[in-house]
Design a protein around this nucleic acid. Structure first.
Length: 721
DNA sequence: TGTTAATAAATTTTT
DNA sequence: TTTATTAACA
């Protein structure tokens, strides 16, 4: 057998990892060091050389995108379909497991999945039912409470009795939430993992089966695993220590979502036979860029340690630009991108990375004004759109009458005269009888004591669902969807809605029919689950694309988080200011600050050829002018790795300067707007504006300690700090 | 029942 | 500044 295609494209460290005879392996893979390649080639090696059946391999990722990329790369490398291989996300695999063993795991066979939005709505409704004030028990916080406990493996009944009334109430809500989900046959994201874990843990014969079955378990982005995910991996591999993980502690940026870097240390303890291999050769960036990244990340403590290097050249220096304000920041970036494309480069190879989504606006405006096509990542995905979720809710009710969140969602959408009063009756009864909203509604419709004004629209709704069910019973999935969209009245409802968005909504509803049609051709999960139920699960588990116009050559705008795993020739990291990046909320806590630093590290290592680090001297934030200090991350990179740039064809005077004070631009060229200065008495500050000329020139300075003051330039004796 | 005015809040988001 | 939510209103 020819193993050269598996071995040849690898460097020594990669090769060591791929061919290791030790099954427990920790691959510390730096940014751009070829971690996916190692994973893919490892799997190929196991199958082709060690003769492991594809059946015996489990590969786990975090995103659907990563999973499908891995699968297709394996297929390309081996030139065979990799269907029998279990490659998927933690949630997808847990889902698969639970579908297979639904009964044994204590779930109804047609259980459905709640996404975060559904969960949030359910919690809000629950609070109302429990007659709790949302101001005191904010739904987001409740959601966080529940998910955090589930991720730690704790159910409501496991929580210790608390004397803190707040805590106590939270626990009660958690318990009630669990009951509601149970009754409605619903499972949230965290529940998928928790349930799968409990099931394996408590069902020895099944656990034994999977332990035997999976000869090798491989995990991507291991630094992002949370506690329950680790426990799940541990269960499957504890007997044979057959766990191969790839990760990078320096790129852990999701601890706020429960990711535990500690799992890397835990792995080392729990798998004593393991080997550790570092992938430090970088194939992405110039050494200028890597130097900056390496220097920055050394400011973090407790790292496993790693230094990226490259055989490639020095490349262009990393540039730092101090913009006057956020407008000028955007102008500068747009201008550079214009030159970049004029030099014959593609727009899609340029990216603007920011800390928070709100920052995208100014860049969009400038790019739009200059006629540069761009694409903003993030935002609602297809299956998360309100109109799509409405349609799915009808479909869910067709499949399962007791799906309370779906009932709530569409019982009066489109409006059919079922008001708050009527719904309260339904909810109260459901609560009293501990039954579903559907059952409660049925009972009420038979109850002569209920006024007809309330009864008839309600029974109309029940009738509608029954009719939809009957009418679509024999239809294939896509025709079911095609039938339900208009017959539910949703299409008409959105058609008569006004605004530009409404049109898109109707289009989306039509697109849902296409999505269903496409789904019909996709490979089946091996269950007796109806196609409809499979489609609904698919919709929850894979929320779909953000935007569609991927073919056009566009500048890419996204958050630093969204950029993880991507690479671009030209990268701008913008808004490098204290309080913005690092974010205000992270300044107090060292551990959160370190995460911000890792985020910056991730950003820097996205750049292949040229990197700009940009901050503004003045920034309008929440409608107020602020005078932030440049980010500490800039100071943490030694200046020999950085190069300050000024606007092209401009002797250090920002463009905005002439706009702000067109007549008074002569102060000897020493001071400019937004510049930091030091005053003997008032300390450090920033120049806001000035007026007058020569000996009459006055400047307004915002001092950190003393506030905003006007000073005569001639007497103030301002220094550059 | 849907619209409007006031008020509060304000990261990051793989599933 | 924008955005979401809520209370008051027609």
């Amino acid at each position: 057998m020819d193993i050269t295609p598996i071995i040849d494209p690898l460097n020594p460290a990669q090769r060591e990892a791929v061919t290791s005879s030790t099954p427990a392996l920790l691959v510390l893979a730096g940014a751009g060091s070829g971690k996916t390649r190692v994973l893919v080639h490892r799997i190929a090696w196991l199958m082709q050389v060690e003769g492991t059946s594809p059946h015996g391999i489990l590969a786990v990722t975090f995103t659907n995108k990563a999973a499908s990329e891995m699968r297709s790369r394996i297929e390309n490398l081996l030139n065979i379909p990799a269907q029998s291989l279990w490659v998927g996300t933690f949630h997808g695999l847990a889902h698969r497991l639970l579908r297979r063993h639904a009964k044994e795991a204590g779930l109804p066979s047609a259980f459905q999945i709640l996404d975060s939005d559904d969960q949030h709505r359910l919690i809000r409704r629950l609070l109302k039912t429990l007659d709790l004030d949302e101001a005191r028990w904010p739904p987001r916080q409740v959601q966080w409470f529940i998910n955090a406990h589930k991720e730690e493996g704790r159910r409501a009944r496991h929580l210790a009795e608390s004397y803190d009334p707040f805590q106590k109430q939270m626990q009660r809500i958690y318990l009630a939430y669990e009951e509601t989900c149970e009754r409605s046959g619903l499972v949230d994201f965290a529940e998928l993992l928790l349930r799968a874990h409990e099931f394996l843990r408590d069902t020895p014969e099944v656990l034994d089966h999977y332990q035997r079955r999976f000869h090798h378990v491989l995990v991507d982005e291991f630094q992002d695993t949370n506690r329950i995910q680790y426990a799940w991996l541990r269960l499957l591999t504890r007997e044979r220590e057959n766990l191969f993980v790839v990760g990078d502690d320096d790129q852990s940026i999701y601890s706020w979502r429960g990711a535990k870097i500690e799992n890397l240390h835990k792995f080392q303890k729990d798998y004593p036979s393991h080997r550790l291999i570092r992938l430090e050769q970088n194939y992405r960036s110039t050494s200028s860029i890597l130097n900056a990244a390496n220097a920055l990340i050394t400011h973090n403590e407790g790292r496993l340690g790693k230094t990226l290097w490259t055989e490639g050249g020095i490349g262009e220096p990393v540039s730092v630009y101090a913009a006057f304000n956020e407008q000028e920041e955007a102008y500068f970036v747009a201008e550079r991108i214009k030159h970049w494309t004029q030099e014959g480069n593609a727009r899609r190879d340029a990216a603007i990375l920011y800390r928070s989504n709100a920052q995208s606006r100014q860049f969009e405006e400038k790019l739009l004004a200059m006629g540069i096509p761009y694409r903003v990542y993030g935002g609602l995905r297809f299956f998360e759109r309100a109109e799509i979720k409405d349609a799915l809710a009808y479909l869910r009710l067709i499949s399962n009458r007791h799906d309370d969140p779906s009932f709530e969602r569409v019982v009066n959408t489109p409006v059919r005269g079922i008001g708050a009063k009527t719904l309260d009756l339904v909810r109260d009864l459901a609560r009293a009888e501990k039954c579903s909203l559907w059952q409660a509604a049925e009972t009420l419709c038979r109850d002569a004591a209920v006024p007809t004004r309330a009864r008839s629209p309600l029974s109309g709704f029940l009738q509608l669902i029954e009719t939809l069910t009957l009418d679509t019973a024999e239809l294939p999935l896509w025709e079911k969807v095609q039938h339900v969209v208009p017959a539910s009245g949703l299409r008409a409802h959105y058609e008569k809605e006004k605004g530009e968005q409404a049109e898109a909504r109707v289009e989306n509803l039509d697109e849902l029919v296409n999505a269903a049609r496409q789904f019909e051709y996709e490979p089946q999960l091996d269950t007796e689950l109806s196609k409809l139920d499979q489609f609904l699960s698919h919709a929850a588990l894979e929320a779909g694309e953000n935007q569609s116009d991927e073919y056009e050559d566009c500048v890419q705008l996204m958050t630093l988080h969204a950029a993880k795993g991507l690479e671009f020739d030209l990268v701008f990291i913008v808004g490098l200011e204290e309080g913005l990046f690092p974010s205000l909320q992270s300044l107090e806590e060292p551990s959160r600050l370190e995460e911000e630093r890792r985020l910056c590290y991730v950003g820097i290592t996205r750049a292949k050829r040229k990197l700009f680090l940009i901050y503004a001297e003045t920034r309008r934030l929440y409608g107020k002018e602020t005078y932030p200090r440049p980010s500490r991350f800039l100071r943490e990179i030694p200046s020999e790795h950085l190069q300050e740039v000024r606007m092209r064809g401009n002797t250090g005077r920002p463009i905005a300067f002439s706009q702000t004070s067109p007549s008074t631009n002569d102060n000897g060229g020493v001071f400019k707007l937004g510049q930091r200065v030091r005053h003997a008495k008032f300390g450090e500050g920033v120049i806001l504006q000035y007026e007058g000329e020569g000996s009459q020139a006055r400047v307004q300075v915002n001092f950190a300690e003393s506030g905003i003051k006007w000073l005569m330039l001639a007497y103030a004796n301002l220094q550059r700090p």
